[in-house]
Design a protein around this nucleic acid. Sequence first.
DNA 1: GTTAGCACTCAAACAACTCGAGTGCTAATA
DNA 2: TATTAGCACTCGAGTTGTTTGAGTGCTAAC
Lengths: 347, 347
Amino acid sequence: MELSERKIKILQAVIRNYLETGEPVGSRTISKYTDLNLSSATIRNEMSDLEEMGYIIQPHTSAGRIPTDKGYRLYVDNMMSEKIAELDEREKALTEREDILIEKVDKVETLLKNMAKMLATDTNYAAMVTTPKHKGSKIKFIQISALGENQLLCVVVSEGNLISNKIIEVEGIDNEELLKLNMLINTNLAGLTLEEINLALIQKMAKAAGENATLVDEVINAVTDAIKVNDDLEIYTSGATNIFKYPELSDTERASGFLSAFEEKNSLANLINEEDSDTGIQVYIGNETPIQNMKDCSVVTATYELDDGIKGTIGVIGPRRMDYEKVVETLRVVKKQLADSFRKKDD
Amino acid sequence: MELSERKIKILQAVIRNYLETGEPVGSRTISKYTDLNLSSATIRNEMSDLEEMGYIIQPHTSAGRIPTDKGYRLYVDNMMSEKIAELDEREKALTEREDILIEKVDKVETLLKNMAKMLATDTNYAAMVTTPKHKGSKIKFIQISALGENQLLCVVVSEGNLISNKIIEVEGIDNEELLKLNMLINTNLAGLTLEEINLALIQKMAKAAGENATLVDEVINAVTDAIKVNDDLEIYTSGATNIFKYPELSDTERASGFLSAFEEKNSLANLINEEDSDTGIQVYIGNETPIQNMKDCSVVTATYELDDGIKGTIGVIGPRRMDYEKVVETLRVVKKQLADSFRKKDD
DNA sequence: GTTAGCACTCAAACAACTCGAGTGCTAATA
DNA sequence: TATTAGCACTCGAGTTGTTTGAGTGCTAAC
C-alpha cells in the first residue's frame, strides 16, 4: 500500500494529538483537528489502512489509535521541522539564559550540573550531561610543591585546563631537589598523553634523577593517577521525578524500573554513542533505547564537541510521546552553548 | 493509666511484628508471638488500653493495630538495644568492607559517594552523605604557577588537605616576580581563615607588592574564591529507589513527593542538625522529620567529626517501620570509619 | 470516493455481594 | 479479680455484575 499525502497528514495529526494528550486519538477528533474536511468515516478507513501498515495501533478494540514506534520514527525522520520561526525565538531565549548561567559559574562540575538541571526544567523530562571525555588528553603543566615535612602536592594541568591533584608521602626533600624535580618532570612529561608515558621514558627519567630515582617513580605514579581521574566519566542527572508528570510512566513498576536505571549512572553510559548522525543528535524511540528499563521511554542524545576532539554527551529522557521537536531543538542549542562555554574557558 | 511491664512487652511485640511485615498486627498474632502465654482476648484488652494511651492505632475498625509515632518514639528511646552480640559481628563485617573501600579510593568525592551507596545497599533504605564542612578552615599553603603566557594557576591547600584551584588571567609575568608573589602570598595568608582576610591585610599586601598591586588583588580574589568552593556543602545520595521496596511508600503520589525532595539536595540540607544528642545520632520519626514530603518516613542522621571540629552528616531515610536498631548501629560504625579514614588521609 | 447510519465492542466506573480477619463485649471460669 | 471462651459485629479487599460511552467496522446511499 502507498503512503498517500493524505495518510501522512492523518498520521501526523494522530501523533501531534497524542503527544499532547496522551490519550488514544479517535477518528472524530482527527476529522475536526485537521483542515482536510473529511468525515470521521473516511478518516476511519484511512486509519484502518495506517494500522495495517504498522504506523498506528489500537490499544483495544473500541479505542482510538496511538502511534507505534514505527509511526514515531517516520514522524521524527520526515515530518517534524516546521515551526522554525517559533524555534528561533526559543533559541534566543535559551541562549541568553545559558549565558547568564555560564558567566556565574567557574567550576566545570557546577556548570554541567546546572546545565542538566536547566535541561530538565526546560523540557519537563529527565536530563543527563556527561563530562567531556578527554581521549588521550595531553599534559600541559605539572607543578610539584612541598606541603609540610613529608608531603608533596602534585598538581597536573591537562589540555582543556582540567586540573587534578594528588598528595604523595615522601621522606624529606629540600628545595633545590624539588626545583630540579619539577624541571625534570615538566620537560619530560609536558605535551605527552597518558599512553605515551612508557617504561623506557620512566627509566630514562629515573636515571636522570640519580639518587632521587624512587621519588621520581612515585611522582610519575601520582601524575598518571591524577590524570586518570579526569578520564573518569562523570554523569550528572536531573529531573528524574519529572516522569511522574506522565501517567503512562507513573505506575509503581515502571517508575521504579526507570528510576533505578536512571540512578545507576553506569547504565546511563550505554546512551553514549559516538557514531553520530550528521547533526550529532540521536533519537531512540521506545524499544530502540539501549536500556532495558527504558523501553517505554524515548531518549534523545547529542554529542557536544570541544575544539580538539574532546567529546561529551547530553541527553533527554522522557515518555515515548515526548515533544521531539522541542527536545531536539533544545539539545541543539545547549550543545552549541556548551562547546562555546568551554572554548571561552580555554582562552 | 500505668504502662505496666506487660503492656510494654505487648507494645514491643506489636512494633517488632509490624516492622517486619508492614501489616497491622492482630491480637491472636501477639498471643502466639510472645512468651506471655496470654489468650488473644486478654491481649485485646491490653491493646485497647495501649490504643487509649496513644501508642498504637487501628487503621480501621476491623483491623489489627499499628504503632503511632509516639509508639515508635518509646521504642526507639527505651526498648531498642538488646541484640548486642549480633551487632558486634555486624560491626566487624562492616568495618572490614569499609576498610577495603577506603584503601582503594583517594578522592574525597568518590569516597563519600561510595559510602552513600554502601549505606543504601546495606540498609535497603535511601542514604545521604554530606561533605565535611570546614567552618573557618585555615589556609595551609598556596602555590601560584605560570600556565602559559597569560594565565596563572593558583592552587590552595587548606586544613584537612582539601585542595582547590583556580585559573586567573594576567598580563605577562616573569619568573622572578612569580617567586616573590608566592612568597608574599604564603607568608601573609597561610594559617588564616577566610574570615581573617580583611581589607587592612589586603592593603598591606598590595603595598608590599609595589607595582604588582593589582595582581595581588586578583590572586587574593582567586584564593578566596577557591577556598569558598570547599565551603560549599555537597550532598551525595544513593538508594532513592529503595523506597519502592516498601509498599506503603510506593504509591505514585508519595513516591513522587519523596523522590522530588530527595533529588532536591537543598531540602535535604534541612536534615543537618548540629545540636546533637550525646551519641551524635538523631532519630526523626514520621511527622518529626523537618521535610514536608517525608512525613511518612523516618530519618536517622549522624554527625561524623574530624579532629578539628570539621563536621559532616550521614543519614538514612526509610519508611516509618524502619529497622531502627540496624540503622542506628550501621550509622554508628560508618560515622567512626569515616572519621578515621579522613584522619588517615591527613597524616 | 465519500459519507451517514447503525450495530457492535470493550474499558472504565460504579454498585452489590461475599469473605474473613479482627474486634469488643459478655458471661463463665480459675 | 484477672483471664478466657464464645459470639455477634464491623469493615476492607476482592469478586462479580451492570451501565455507560467512546470509538470502531460495515453497509448502503449519495
